[in-house]
Amino acid sequence: MSVNNEFKPKIVAFCCNWCSYAGADLAGSSRLAYPADVKIIRVPCSCRVNPMFILRAFEKGADGVIICGCHPGDCHYSTGNYYARRRMTLLFSMLDYIGVEKGRARVEWVSAAEGVKFADTMNSFVSKIKDLGENVRLGDIRCKN
């Protein structure tokens, strides 16, 4: 949806409770600004993110979805992000295959101490989504009105 002709994207971020959510907290306490369009949903681990959540977000009008998790090897549940990595790679490959713009969904590993990296990631992701423009290909027309 665009407000006073400047496109304001809707972005859903799934952050894993142990690393990236803590990274987001650190970015917050270090007052590192990133656009307010990003809204964070806390999940126990990046392996909890189901492709249905991502497609549901796009269906209901999200313009970008980013999944953050611990660096491979650092996962609090030891193997969670390894599974997430394979699932997301296959899902992104399918989205690219049916013609969705590249980069509309993204995975980023952010540890609890990387507040700066979290803020930078969000800034770069929002600008990327602004370049791509509104999500038309994966939205449901009934949610548009």
């Binding site: 390894y82 394979r86 992104f92």
Partner: peptide, 9 residues
Amino acid sequence: FKMDDAEPS
């Protein structure tokens, strides 16, 4: 999984 699986990017 393998430790060195490709990244989603």
